[in-house]
């Protein structure tokens, strides 16, 4: 049951992503991507990570993508059609890379297809415990990085 759901979600994710990266307009791309991210969040949940799944929805699909939308709207790029889309020629290296990477990863991963152990997922309590007990320093560093990003964004964004 779970396996089937996983494959369906995987298909949704891939299709959403393909549509997103080939979309002509930025707004469309964002919408496809949000779809893809929702499916990905469900996969996270399936893999026993409810916290990550919820953050994926809240922060990624919610905040970051909205930020993209804001910027796209704010820049006022005129007619979106004026932005040139990649030609087939531009996709050549991308496709080549895709073949190489997926091929390599497929080779590396398909050595022995062992199912995951039966496991009940990681509780929020356990997650938080690890986060604040073992990785306290990482939390501090990440929070400082967010502060720097805030200052930098303010600096770049001010009108001169």
């Amino acid at each position: 049951m779970e396996t089937i759901v996983f494959y369906i979600l995987a298909a949704v994710t891939l299709v959403g992503t393909v549509l997103a990266i080939t979309a002509r307009q930025g707004v469309h791309a964002i919408v496809y991507l949000v779809t893809s991210f929702f499916a990905l969040a469900l996969i996270f949940y399936l893999l026993g990570a409810p916290m990550v799944a919820s953050f994926e929805v809240i922060i990624y699909a919610g905040a970051i993508m909205v930020l993209f939308l804001f910027v796209i709207m704010m820049l006022d790029l005129g007619k979106p059609e004026k932005i040139q889309t990649p030609k087939l020629y531009d996709w050549c290296p991308a496709i080549l890379l895709l073949v190489v990477i997926t091929g390599s990863m497929g080779v590396l991963a398909s050595r022995a297809a062992t199912p995951l152990n039966a496991f009940a997922g990681i509780s929020v309590q356990e997650f938080s415990f690890t986060l604040f007990k073992r990785y306290g320093a990482a939390i501090e560093i990440i929070s400082m990085q967010l502060l720097f990003a805030l200052v930098g964004a303010l600096y770049l964004g001010r009108r001169r």
Binding site: V100, I101, G103, S104, V107
Partner: peptide, 20 residues
């Protein structure tokens, strides 16, 4: 970016070849 990606792909390809 293309150069960077090509380098990464080369490393990956090498690893795959070694593994195979």
């Amino acid at each position: 970016i293309v150069s960077f990606a090509a380098g990464g792909a080369a490393i990956l390809g090498y690893l795959a070849w070694v593994t195979l």
